[in-house]
Design a binder for these strands. Structure first.
Lengths: 163, 163
DNA sequence: GTTAGTGCAAACCTTTTGCAGCTCT
DNA sequence: AGAGCTGCAAAAGGTTTGCACTAAC
């Protein structure tokens, strides 16, 4: 079940909790991962085959506008779609490996500092923040280096090792 | 004219400096603002009416992959397109007013700290970072507050003030 | 019973691709 | 000369909209 938080928040505003919305809410904050609209649609269809893709988009828009979910790009790894996560946790940055797609989350004081400095320096009222960092995770750095060598030497290096 | 930097960098890699690319490069790092593909296309067409939108996209992709320009979303203010800027300056965050669309840039040590902590904490090799902050600028906070009052009271308040 | 919400089809916007012809180097 | 680049047309991907029907409150 979804945390009461989001549902209550919607109810308070007079938003109707339809069967479709309940399914989607449970998926969004039930799954630990970052889902995009299409994945959400596919999962929701398993629970209600009639549920339409458009309803997914409309629900996401509703939640986004209500400040209940955050929209991520994850550096467009995998396409130009958006990914979603509930706004339960503390502010955090997303670290995306551009080779394997793994996403890490970083919580820490640099983010608080940044927020405070922007508020005080510009007199800015912050509503949303998004920090995304793309690169290679510790595992992929090694593999990436190997790939570059193979490209430089053509296909020879991999064959050479066999002989 | 565009800074020699980008053109040289392309030449070194054996990329051809065509008439179209020169026009686009000059626009991208000539204008101080963040342009999207369509704006870039419109400006480029003034200099060469035959230049095609597709060439704009292909050039942007080339520059992006070469690490010469960075792609921004600016919190999707104004649509789902991307905005571009040359990677000349130091790393910085973009602060977008969601009411008037003004974009500010923030340079400061929280960003360096964040970078260092992510590198050391995850052993991550950072290639790109993007920090976007959305909210209301000091000017729009006031106007926004006024708008909310008007919505709450219906159209009355604005008329009431006249009497 | 009302009014908000849904499904369906169709449109929309941004970006990519296939291919024939052109142009930098 | 020849690979690389462009323009054109067409398609693709992701998301939104109009409208009649349905269901939550």
């Amino acid at each position: 079940m979804a945390q009461a938080g989001i549902k209550d928040s919607l109810r308070e505003r007079g938003v109707r909790l339809t069967r479709q919305r309940k399914i989607l809410l449970d998926l969004i904050d039930g799954s630990g991962v970052h889902l995009d609209a299409e994945q959400l649609y596919q999962l929701a269809k398993e629970k209600d085959p009639k549920l339409n893709r458009v309803t997914v988009y409309r629900t996401l828009k509703l939640l986004k506008q209500g400040g209940l979910v955050d929209e991520l790009d994850l550096m467009h790894y995998g396409g130009d779609q958006h990914y979603y996560e509930t706004r339960l946790k503390q502010e955090h940055a997303h670290i995306i490996c551009l080779r394997c797609g793994k996403v890490e989350e970083f919580f820490g004081e640099p983010l608080h500092r940044l927020r405070k400095q922007v508020e005080s320096h510009f007199g800015f009222q912050i509503l949303i923040t998004r920090t995304e960092i793309g690169g290679y995770c510790s595992h992929c750095q090694v593999l990436r280096a190997r790939e570059l060598v193979e490209v430089r030497d053509g296909d020879h290096s991999s064959r050479a090792r066999k002989s």
